[in-house]
Amino acid sequence: MSAPTRDSLLDDATLEAYFDATIAAGHRIEPRDWMPEGYRNGLIRQIAQHAHSEIIGMQPEGDWLLAAPSLRRKAILLAKVQDEAGHGMYLYSAAETLAADRADLTDKLIERRQKYSSIFNYPTLTYADVGVIGWLVDGAAICNQVPLCRSSYGPYARAMIRVCKEESFHQRQGYELLMTMMGGTPEQRAMVQDAVDRWWWPSLMMFGPPDDDSPNTAQSMKWGVKRHTNDELRQRFVDMSVPQAEFLGVTLPDPELTLDPESGHYRFGAIDWAEFKRVIAGEGPCNDERIARRRAARDDNAWVTEAATAYAEKQP
């Protein structure tokens, strides 16, 4: 039996009951299925924010493409940044199945009416940042995103499976770069430690505000759009990263980081949520630069898109 579609003559209460039952049974909602407007709008917001993060996220690492210190590293980084453009494309496509429009979402990003992950507002100061972004930032993204492969919305869940596979590859490449640099010169080891010092706390902020200050979490979990709370995922990331840091030979910049033998989890220090809010509010080191470049790519090349459209219309 298939779900009722939007053209169905059933009343909203019946449709909503069917929708709720579909979610409760762990089945997927598909684009033609009826869904509450709150579900649709929340998903568009979440998927667009994710897509914007992929596209803005090309910039910090992209800043090292021209200066990558070996041809092999240049090829790895170019392929990675290219993957991120691809992720942005799948995600915008998933949003389009909810009747959103890619150009409109891009406009909202540029006009700062939609957000992207605050992590990409920090600068990449050395080549070690490329490795640390792979290890910690992609690592945190994987913790956030793997549960989304089971999102209740089918197109999003399917896009996330491919995204997660590629992110996992990127994380390993990042870690491998750091391992190589730690085996290099003392200057290289110092670069890695410095990059870890700068990126550790912003990576923990990637999971979003603490559960008692996360207004959307409860509804998102009820609808199966979100599967774990921010704090659960953050804890999972810390537990995963500490042994990796030890193996790498770097110190995580948190004197309070200790293993709690009873729970088996690492306890960590207080996150500076004031900084998180400042960066979200647009006052991070690179917010203006990131948006300005995206705006320039749209505006300076608008004539190209217009040409492609005009040409297509002329074809028989």
Binding site: L65, L66, A85, G86, V304
Partner: peptide, 17 residues
């Protein structure tokens, strides 16, 4: 590579890269 993050469309980012 200078076009990466500056290209007209995402499809073109991928193609030029």
């Amino acid at each position: 590579t200078q076009w990466v993050t500056n290209a007209p469309e995402l499809e073109e980012e991928v193609a030029l890269a």
